[in-house]
């Protein structure tokens, strides 16, 4: 799922649930890649058409809490709008995140969505900059 060397996502193992991890050249890219990883836990990413925009905003005292908040804001939007998302434009200014998530309503037959995400957790939570300058954002999500 690489888009370039620094910008990609992956899953990592957790016994009962699933870990998601995003890499990016910026904090925003890492958050965006992690959100793609979350959608990929639910269904095949390439089945979700980025058709309809939804505005998302959140605020938290540090980048790690902001990351969990971002994912939970998406979980909420998915649950209330009954949508899945596959494109994210994010702006982070200190403790505030403003984003547009693009997606479409759930279509069971086409998306074959396997699980709802109940929430993002603080388990294995990490947001930081690696030695090579790339940003990483990760945590375990409860499904």
């Amino acid at each position: 799922m690489k888009t370039n060397d620094e910008c990609r996502w992956e899953h990592f193992s957790h016994e009962a649930d699933m870990g998601i991890r995003g890499y990016g050249n910026t904090l925003e890219e890492a958050f965006s890649q992690a959100a793609l990883a979350m959608t990929a836990v639910i269904c095949e990413l390439n089945t979700v058409i980025p058709l309809i925009p939804r505005k998302i905003e959140c605020e938290a005292p540090d980048p790690e809490l902001l990351f969990v908040d971002w994912l939970n804001a998406l979980v909420y939007e998915m649950a209330v709008s009954k949508m899945l998302f596959s494109r994210f434009d994010i702006k982070i200014n200190k403790s505030t995140l403003r984003a547009t998530a693009w997606g479409e309503p759930v279509d069971q037959a086409r998306h074959q969505a396997a699980v709802e995400v109940k929430g993002a957790t603080y388990t294995e939570l990490k947001v930081n900059r690696e030695h090579d300058g790339a940003w990483i954002a990760q945590c375990v999500i409860d499904v």
């Binding site: 809490l65 939970n72 929430g119 603080y122």
Partner: peptide
């Protein structure tokens, strides 16, 4: 369902802080 998930999410954050 969603109600329990949302309560868990919100109070976890409040308790962390």
């Amino acid at each position: 369902r969603g109600l329990g998930h949302q309560i868990g999410t919100e109070f976890l954050k409040r308790m962390v802080i």
